[in-house]
Design a protein around this nucleic acid. Structure first.
Lengths: 412, 412
DNA sequence: CGGCGTTTGTTCTATGAATGAACTATTACC
DNA sequence: GGTAATAGTTCATTCATAGAACAAACGCCG
């Protein structure tokens, strides 16, 4: 098992001897990144993917070197040449280089409280295959649930392999405390799971599976959109998870047990939390807490709350709105602590908060403006997540592929 | 101005083309690190500094390569050969390699509320020169104060240069919000300074000076001791600052405005803070808040509080102890948020907290055990700082030298 | 006390990856 | 169709490392 989920901050200044082939590896990475970054960048209408010559000027390498490196990426099936476009100017037309499609793929897996699923992405970011099953996995049997997910996954994997794609690896997202170094699950309260290695029960054989926290993989899914390189991701559900992304990578100090914003103190005189303490954020802004405060059942669908909020009038509407406002205030207070402590000034609202954004955001922004010390110099930006449903599946698959592209030498 | 204060997480996977000389630089760094790490490691009695051969086996390079690299470090005066010790076994005796003394030095500068100072360290970590002046710089004139510090510094610098040492650079520590990218001071409430570049008024000419937050440099000073590679540093004074150290380097996302634990919410029903919000930690565990709650004047010396706490009996003693207990509880609550959000499981108590450790620690540990979610799996360790007085001076000077050793090619 | 094995450090040739200049390929423009 | 321009390739050169052979300085032991 390699570096799980992301590079740790100190990992890049790697402590091993550099030889000739280290140069190769590093420049190969540089070239791959140049091609992939260009593909990910918001494309202006007339923009065309970079050629070998473009990559050379962008990286500072010579065209000769870039040519040999690109050749390696081509045989590794990480990059594809497009048909030369007849340029509008003199000279031999350039060969555009783009991430390869349907060649190498990454797999995202997830077990959450009310569903499990598999999603396969290719290097271009396209969804190649997907299967999601519903269920109620509260206090479930890990072996049975993981076996079910494994069966789904091996089915999907067999399919894409039959189409000639190579599967680079998989990430399994779980809603709990996952050790970022060992990949062991310490505890997942809402699943009722604890102290287990979830990989063997999947029965996926050779396929390398790395386990990670659901909110953190969901945070990575945002990188596909137009986010700044550093942001805080908050995933609202029954519990409230978080992920810290710094310069495009997850921040995972020690064992990666960070972003636990659900248990930040909002009011020490507040209600008792499942964790034993009093006045945790979860008691104000957790999904069940909001639904109850809105006068709904704790397991009511979120849509029913949204419908209420959208209604024009009535006592029930008032109560629902007040509940969300209260949640927004609590969230603003806790997020202010988060921003003050991490210094990251963009907040992305994920999970149920995405749909509640319209009602939450004013309160959250007010709380941040009041309490974030650096706000006068670097205003905090709050925005809704864009990754869509089951973001952790996308984030996991993306992360597998990011690692491949970050070290093409190890792959090719 | 180079990378200020520390490498940013993404900096090491540097995005420039690798050539032959890149290999040199990287291996040079590797060799330097091997020699310095061995010198910093807790030396068992019989241990002897590493030889070229030792460095070769430690790094994986050949002895031939290590020899040429060590030669460079010798001429750059970063490393010195000791007299060969007659080994107890057969074979040619090894030449021990150690960090050079009194050759290349780093300068730490600081302006704080009641003092300013200069400290010069050499590569072996020895204090080569030091000058500290007292004063009251509350609402002071930046130009005047900085000129005074600059005069002190150029005096000291001239002295060490006259002794043949080369000054690699300086770090200026300030108790305020410093932009880690530009080195501009946004605001230092307790000095009454705002929006200025403090470097020109120093009048230090050629000497490269980088500005940083005081608590963050003080945190780095702890690295000289026996701390784990990652820890949270909390510096208690009138304000409460913090620093996040991950894998031996400061965590500085975006502009480095993190660790502002002084304004974490302890109780929204609490007293109003200078920042405008209610119930910030500073109102419970700030130096002035503690002194007042203990029945002392807000500007009383800390020793008077410690003397009270050490006393046997009496109503004043009770009040003082209660004040510190209350501060410890608030600190425990805020630190629990800090640990839950960053995932770093060691807390170092600096500033006035160092001296109050005996009375604070039980309360802080209780709060952490109660509220830190991962505590059952990774208990939070609380300890007092060891860097001694004016830790930011030491941390700043160390940081200058760390950068030199981290990139010896740029220096030699 | 001098040869022998051992370990350290140096010298020298070979290898491999990037450079830079020359060369080929393919277009637009006149 | 000739010329200029740009893309991509070929090839001799450069340079840092590896690896092997060598020199230096020790302990050991007969």
């Amino acid at each position: 098992m390699t570096e799980p989920t992301t590079r740790s901050p100190g990992a890049a200044d790697d402590a091993s001897a550099s030889r000739q082939h280290t140069l190769r590896e590093r420049n190969l990475r540089l070239v791959a990144r140049a091609i992939y970054d260009a593909a990910a960048a918001p494309r202006s209408p007339g923009a065309v993917p970079p050629s070998r010559a473009d990559v050379a000027t962008a990286t500072g390498l010579t065209r000769a070197t870039v040519s040999t490196l690109v050749d390696r990426l081509l045989v590794a099936r990480l990059v594809t040449e497009l048909a030369p476009v007849p340029a509008q100017r003199a000279g031999r037309p350039a060969v555009p280089l783009v991430p390869a499609r349907r060649t190498v793929v990454g797999v995202g897996l997830e077990v959450n409280v009310d569903y499990l699923g598999v999603r396969v992405l290719d290097l271009a970011g396209d969804v190649v295959a997907e299967r999601v099953g519903t269920g109620s996995f509260h206090d479930s049997d890990p072996a049975a649930v993981l076996a079910r997910l494994g069966a789904l996954a091996s089915d999907v994997v067999a399919g894409v392999q039959a189409d000639g794609m190579q599967v680079a690896g998989a990430r399994l997202a779980l809603p709990g405390l996952v050790d970022a170094r060992t990949g062991e699950l310490e505890v997942a309260p809402n699943l009722g799971w604890s102290s287990l290695d979830p990989v063997p029960p999947l029965g996926l054989g050779e396929l390398p599976v790395v386990v990670a926290n659901e909110a953190k993989l969901a945070a990575l899914a945002e990188l596909a959109g137009d986010v700044p390189p550093s942001f805080l991701y908050v995933s609202g559900d029954v519990g409230i998870g978080g992920g810290i992304v710094v310069d495009g990578a997850l921040f995972l100090a020690e064992r990666g047990w960070n972003g636990e914003i659900g248990h930040v103190v909002v009011d020490p005189a507040g209600p008792r939390c499942t964790c034993g303490a009093y006045g945790c954020l979860e008691q104000y802004a957790g999904k069940e807490a909001i639904l109850r405060a809105a006068g709904l059942e704790a397991d009511a669908p979120l849509d029913s709350l949204v419908a209420l909020l959208r209604d024009d009038d009535g006592a029930a509407v008032e109560q629902a709105r007040a509940a969300v406002v209260r949640a927004g205030q609590a969230l603003g207070s806790a997020l202010a602590d988060f921003v003050n402590l991490t210094g990251v000034s963009t907040v992305v609202l994920g999970g149920v908060y995405t749909e509640l954004e319209d009602w939450l955001r004013p309160e959250v922004e007010a709380g941040l403006a009041d309490r974030v010390l650096a706000a006068p110099f670097a205003p905090v930006v709050v925005r809704a997540a864009v990754a869509g449903e089951h973001a952790a599946l996308t984030g996991g698959a993306r992360e597998v592929l990011r690692e491949v592209v970050a070290d093409p030498a190890a792959w090719g």
